[in-house]
Design a binder for these strands. Structure first.
Lengths: 198, 198
DNA sequence: TTGGTTAAGATACTGGTAGTAGCTTAAAAG
DNA sequence: CTTTTAAGCTACTACCAGTATCTTAACCAA
């Protein structure tokens, strides 16, 4: 009953995911992954060239498959808050935290960095574009303000909050601040009155 | 001629700064700092509890003392671009890069994290507030839009660029994009026409 | 079924580094 | 001149990434 090929690979990735969740990327060791997968370190190195590569693969492996539904609350503010809250929930997860640790660790490896960055981008942008497109059709937003930079500004600022404040989830008051002081004024310039939360 | 006290401490910090510049934080070792300072590792550990603590102290030690002059180009756009360019220049320095490595490394140490974050914040905000205050007095900006969040939005986005794109300096086209697509529209909503770069 | 090929498993090793310990000795202080 | 303090030196532990080697199980082709 010695595993081979895909079955073994999955077992290793699964073990790595569990380690990422339990101890994070920094404290994950190749030995611990091997032990948990019931195999040996060199077997892992036959498939991935480094700890970082393994963990990136593990991260990808645990991503949910289907595309996420963009929220549709009827207002741009509601949609934006929903999207940003969702992003915050994901980022404050152990896996989200691990991803940030990985990102920090591979800053000097342009290739892997691009991999991860694409992952991050793909995950986020389309939801914002959908939500903004709806706001445009509602007349809440002028079409010409919909640029990639503006579409991602809220998540970008959220990411910065994590970088500066560490691993804890960002409070919802900060999310509201980002939406009400930056995202909405930017998207609805002059078109709709600025809303302030209760 | 054995050094003691402050003289020795300065020599160690100086050595650490030079190592940070030459090899960065990740590849800086306590042995290399000790060797460069002409002392021994345990002497360092008598003063700082860890590699991270030493490097934070070294970073602070090399900071220029006096307050920086805020730019005054006559327009908010010029001032913003100048400030953002200055921040970019600093962040793309070896020392700036080292600071980001340190920041990434101490994410699970709240106390040190706050230390560094305060450092970062103090460095940046006042310039933006000055520049925006001038814009208010010029009538370019409405006073009520001047909030901490808006004041730091450009540097926050720049920091995010570094996190996603790695160690290389961010191109000036991106700086202009941040200023023209985010900062100016936010601050001058409806007050002044949006300018697009040549 | 058999014999060859591939890859998994076990184990041990190298090299590097954070942090510690204990002793020796120079400098300061009285 | 004696005592105290702290610097210098050296050796050590513990940990971990990555490598190497040899044995053995699974798979495959005939």
């Amino acid at each position: 009953m010695r595993r081979r090929g895909a079955a073994l690979e999955e077992a290793i990735l699964q073990a790595a995911v569990e380690e990422l969740i339990e101890v994070g990327y920094r404290r994950l060791t190749m030995d611990s992954v091997a032990a948990r997968a019931g195999t040996a370190k060199n077997v892992i190195y036959r498939r991935w060239p480094s700890r970082a590569a393994l963990c990136i693969a593990a991260y990808r492996a645990q991503l949910p498959t289907g595309a996420e539904q963009a929220p549709d609350t009827g207002s741009l503010r509601g949609d934006a808050l929903a999207l940003l809250t969702r992003a915050n929930d994901r980022m404050s997860t152990p896996i989200g935290r691990a991803l940030r640790e990985i990102l920090a660790d591979i800053q000097s490896d342009p290739e892997r960095l691009r991999e991860i960055r694409d992952q991050i981008s793909r995950a986020g942008v389309s939801g914002w574009l959908t939500v903004m497109a709806r706001a445009v059709s509602r007349g809440e937003v002028a079409p010409e303000v919909v640029t990639p930079r503006v579409a991602t500004v809220a998540v970008d600022l959220l990411r910065n909050e994590y970088a500066l404040n560490g691993a804890n989830a960002i409070p919802s008051s900060v999310l509201a601040e980002i939406v009400d002081e930056v995202f909405l004024p930017l998207t609805t310039r002059g078109q709709a009155p600025r809303r302030t939360p209760g």
